[in-house]
């Protein structure tokens, strides 16, 4: 039987088969991701709402302008671009793993799963560096008429509007919500990356033990891939909301 013929005459909703031509596991994964999209959506929309309610917001180019081993060079957006590329690249290797799975090529799946896991770990490492940098980096800030040195935490940040003090421009305390939301949302995303890595490691081990080869299909890799791409997708929006606008 040719697949095209089935495709045209199929009554998708008549029962006895999936209306999506997908196994229940894949359908479940899709709807789980929908649900998770609403979790992240709620976070990002809350962030937007609070941001809309403030007169002043932090300029991301001032906050995220450093790069590991680059000292105090002013490199806005450079590091986060690196993180974005790492995640996109690990997404590509994930698709390639799924692709190898379709071809039932066990060695290929293993290779690309390893690359994906590596990409995920690199991303988490970058995030750890960025968090450390924000939490330890001291910035001059004018508090109650006195100059102090503040780091960026969930409870305060030194990136408020600048005022003239003793003949030079000094920042005042910025909106608290900036740090709160930044750490909360990137933390929640990082948690997703972390769980994605765990899932991918499990999938790698299962591939290694040839579970999927015996089963006759690599659908589990596909489902893990969906999750991994979703994490990438969320990052695209986090990147937009926190770094670009």
């Amino acid at each position: 039987m040719s697949t095209a013929a089935v495709q045209q005459g199929t009554k998708w909703w008549s029962g006895g088969k999936s209306p999506f031509n997908a196994s229940y596991g894949k359908v479940m994964m899709w709807y789980f991701l929908m649900s998770d999209a609403f979790t992240f959506g709620a976070f990002l929309i809350s962030y937007g709402t609070i941001r809309f309610s403030q007169n002043h917001w932090v300029d991301p180019n001032h906050v995220f302008n450093s790069f590991p081993f680059a000292g105090h060079a002013n490199l806005p957006l450079a590091f986060v671009s690196l993180m974005t590329f790492i995640l996109i690249a690990s997404s590509v290797t994930m698709v390639l793993a799924v692709h190898e799975g379709h071809k039932m090529n066990k060695a290929g799946v293993e290779k690309y799963m390893l690359w994906t896991i590596l990409g995920g770990i690199c991303f988490l490492g970058c995030q750890a560096w960025e968090w450390t940098h924000l939490l330890t980096g001291q910035h001059e800030v004018l508090v109650n008429g006195q100059l102090e040195y503040w780091n960026t935490t969930v409870a305060h940040n030194p990136f408020g509007p600048e005022v003239m003090f003793n003949g030079k421009e000094v920042a005042t305390p910025g909106p608290i919500a900036f740090g709160s939301y930044f750490f909360e949302i990137t933390g929640f995303h990082g948690f997703h990356v972390f769980s994605g890595i765990i899932i991918n490691i499990v999938m790698f081990i299962k591939t290694k033990m040839n579970h999927f080869g015996q089963r006759g299909h690599y659908e589990m890799i596909e489902k893990a891939g969906l999750y991994w791409h979703f994490v990438d997708l969320v990052w695209v929006f986090v990147f937009l909301c926190f770094y670009l606008i």
Binding site: K11, W13, S14, G15, G16, K17, S18, P19, F20, A22, S23, Y24, V27, M28, Y31
Partner: peptide
Amino acid sequence: ISTILNLRTKGMSM
């Protein structure tokens, strides 16, 4: 959701 969508018996259209 996935049970209702995927596991209806033959003839049980939506």
